[in-house]
Amino acid sequence: MADQIGNVWIFIEQEEGKIADVSLELVCKGRELANQLGVKTEAVLLGNNVESLADTLYSYGCDTVILAEDEALEPFTVLPYARVLTDLIVEHKPNILLFGATFKGRELAPRVASEKLAGLTADCTDLQIDDFDDKVNKASYQNKLMQIRPAFGGNIIATIVNTWDDPQMVTVREGVMKMDAPDSNRTGELVKVTPKLTDAEKVIKVIERVREDKTVDLKGAPIIVSGGYGVGDKETFAMIKELAATLGGEVGASRAAVDAGWIDHDHQVGQTGVTVRPKLYIACGISGSIQHVAGMDDSKKIIAINNDPDAPIFSVAHYGIVGDLKDVIPKMIKAFKAKA
């Protein structure tokens, strides 16, 4: 083992000067890992005119913000980002590097890992520090990052370890790590670096870019009413929305309901959507595939409504109602209005 292990790095994703939630979630998790290892928590912030974001990063627990600014780093394109990040890794040798498993993170991280010949594990749902005894190769490693992720369509959970040179790289799903409250008294050190970019990194040109911030905040919603394929049609799906509005919650959906076109992807809960853990999750007409359950089974209370008494969703529910949604939902709305 090296005498001095490197720090924990978090790649900070920002869009128009706003830091992605997942990056702040990872700063909090990264700080926990860094404390266990006795190293620093360092943010890597790329963009143009984004220096003002450093204070936010300190308040969430970063000891250092490594800042690289260049016109070619705004908006995000993969080649200049990969170049700057790889150069920084070679120079500073971080022990761990965390990315959000977002569109950007999942495009950027493999490019960097490939050049660095580092291991990379996608879509982790948990990270821990532990020792690893590699019986096959008769080698043992101390204080490695346990990279825990669902695989095989969510049917298995694998713990993966990177045994080559650092950094140990992972992408982490949005919403699975807890974001702690910021503390504005915290300060840190700003390290400015000058990117060395050439024309080779500028061969991809952005001709048009259309985006809007998500209008749905499923991760932050205390109550979620979700509809699945069993809802049957768009008209009945309106009842899901009505129940959500009555209870003061957000509308969620399974992949099947999104694929059916009843609601858009921003509302999707599960492995290919958002991971949520509300106070109350009401699953309406959702059969309960592993892919969906993986995104909601940490909810504090789960109510399942389904006309199939054998639906797997009942095995994770705290309350099960076997019945027709068109009958049950109006009764819930009526009961709530009468009592609240």
């Binding site: 291991g119 298995i156 959970i157 694998a158 370890v161 045994t163």
Partner: peptide, 9 residues
């Protein structure tokens, strides 16, 4: 570089 330490169903 990545090794599977353990798999749980």
């Amino acid at each position: 570089p990545t090794k599977v330490k353990k798999i749980e169903s």
